[in-house]
Write a protein that binds this DNA or RNA. Structure first.
Length: 280
DNA sequence: CATACGTCCTGCCAGC
DNA sequence: TGCTGGCAGGACGTAT
């Protein structure tokens, strides 16, 4: 569910609302969301103050005082729901963890499939962990040349390359497919086969779709919600994802769905040819 | 080392 | 109406 634009949307809502507030109590209802005992998790967090909320890849990262980090990976169906006022919203159907905050509100983590995780890190451990993730796609220091060189080291299909968090942090199946369409690149082509021009077109397409989706508050297909429970607005703007059989917005030919690496890929066969045009 | 595949879990939807 | 199989936005462990 949540890829970079969805997590960015959540973080932009949480950051101003949570900054400076303390966790007065923590209640764990589904401990398989954690990788430590609920008792230890709770004991280490109660009394902490939230200094900042930010994003790294698809993770929500909270900086706490005393110094530690709380990372939320939403998996497929995780939601962070914020109730700022005193009034009690009825609990969501799959409530996993509740944080009771100073000034009376609370933050709830809800997750149908429980593929998500809530993880604590020391600053040192987080630094190492973050180092295992690839660069942020929207970071301007990721130049077209660096992007091209990174692609050129891998024989994986370029769609798989985009999904690999250790190569690039934050891209999931929706935006990988949309970026490949915008860049005119077939998803099954080997990453190392893209030429510099194609590589740059892909980077431009990726950045544009991520920015557009952030602008719209993310894509809700089914489960994704903002912290107030609202849907994102980008779904109608998807050009290929989930649109098998629909006309291509560029050439009117039918969008196709193919499956590889156990996941659906959507593409326009005409706009995203399988083999690069070896004209020269 | 790099890449490929099965698995975790629940809910929903199309098709019979 | 009710059942069944297929499918889902992620990420990790294991096998090759």
């Amino acid at each position: 569910m949540p890829e970079l634009p969805e997590v960015e949307t959540i973080v932009r809502q949480l950051a101003p609302a949570l900054r400076g507030r303390a966790m007065e109590n923590v209640r764990v209802l589904r401990s398989d969301i954690l990788r430590e005992s609920p008792h230890r998790f709770t004991a280490k967090l109660v009394g902490s103050t939230i200094l900042a909320v930010r994003r790294r890849g698809k993770n929500v990262v909270m900086d706490l005082d005393p110094a530690q980090l709380l990372l939320v990976n939403l998996g497929m169906t995780g939601r962070l729901l914020l109730s700022d006022s005193g009034k009690n919203a009825s609990p969501p159907d799959h409530l996993a963890v509740e944080f009771f905050l100073s000034s009376g509100g609370y933050l709830r983590y809800d997750d149908v499939r429980r593929f998500g995780h809530l993880l604590r890190f020391s600053p040192e451990k987080w630094k190492a962990e973050s180092g295992r993730l690839g660069p942020e796609p929207l970071d301007p220091t990721l130049t077209p040349d660096l992007f091209y060189r990174a692609l050129s080291t891998s024989r994986s299909p370029v769609r798989s390359w985009l999904l690999d968090q250790s190569r690039l942090a934050g891209v999931g199946n929706i935006y990988a497919n949309e970026a490949l369409f915008r860049g005119g690149i077939h998803p099954a082509r080997k990453a190392c086969d893209l030429d510099p021009g194609e590589s740059e077109a892909l980077l431009v397409g990726l950045r544009s779709v991520l920015r557009d989706a952030i602008e719209a508050g993310g894509t809700t297909l089914r489960d994704y919600r903002t912290t107030t429970g609202e849907s994102g607005g980008f779904a109608p703007s998807l050009q290929v994802y989930g649109r098998a059989g629909d006309p291509c917005p560029a050439c009117n030919g039918p969008i196709r769905r193919i499956v590889f690496a156990n996941r659906s890929a959507f593409l326009c066969p005409r706009c995203q040819p399988e083999v690069e045009s070896s004209v020269s």
